[in-house]
Amino acid sequence: MDKFTRLTAPAAPLNLANVDTDKIIPARFLKTIKRSGLGKSLFADMRYNADGSENPSFVLNQPKYRQAQILVAGDNFGCGSSREHAPWALLDFGIRCVIAPSFADIFHGNCFKNGILPIVLPADVCEQLMDDAAQGTNARLTIDLEKQVVVRPDGEEIHFEVDAFRKHCLLNGLDDIGLTLEHAAAIDAYEAKTPSWKPAINGV
């Protein structure tokens, strides 16, 4: 996983609530056995017309947002399915940070596993950032994870909260599995206490 430390980039405004994972990437694009290459299918049903051409009014199709690395969105972003293809598609497009008043739990967790920082800020603050984002490439936001601040184009710093363990993993690009395996002895000890009635799935 790539580290996330500090990012300065244009932000794209997606002023919609309840953006579900079917919107982020429709199920027909989940038939892949790879993590890469999903960026072109990001927001496919909003981004492309029925004939496959680009819908020029969709935010990420506008020239000033094609290089966006930050997305500012509405409430309950990422609701719906557990598909990690949603953060994979965002990442493949180039998005490293999503800012919203709230996120659905599974999507929120999946972001951290892929080097994407989801930032929760109050709705009125998100609206200000949405206004900043509406100014396009001239108005870059800076995200400083170490300091836990979003820096607005006018220099104002906005503090955000982040889980300490997840912050540590993002800053250092740490692999969860490696960390958990440091607890292998505890897992062994736990398994040794398995109740006698617990069946195994054998003999399928």
Partner: peptide, 29 residues
């Protein structure tokens, strides 16, 4: 995400992403 279904039996059941699928396969935790 619809793993929540199994909660009807009184189990703590929840959906996970693919990174966590790998994590459970490797560590059962």
């Amino acid at each position: 995400s619809h793993t929540s279904t199994h909660g009807a039996l009184g189990a703590l059941a929840f959906g996970i992403g693919t990174s966590e699928v790998e994590h459970v396969l490797a560590t059962q935790t």
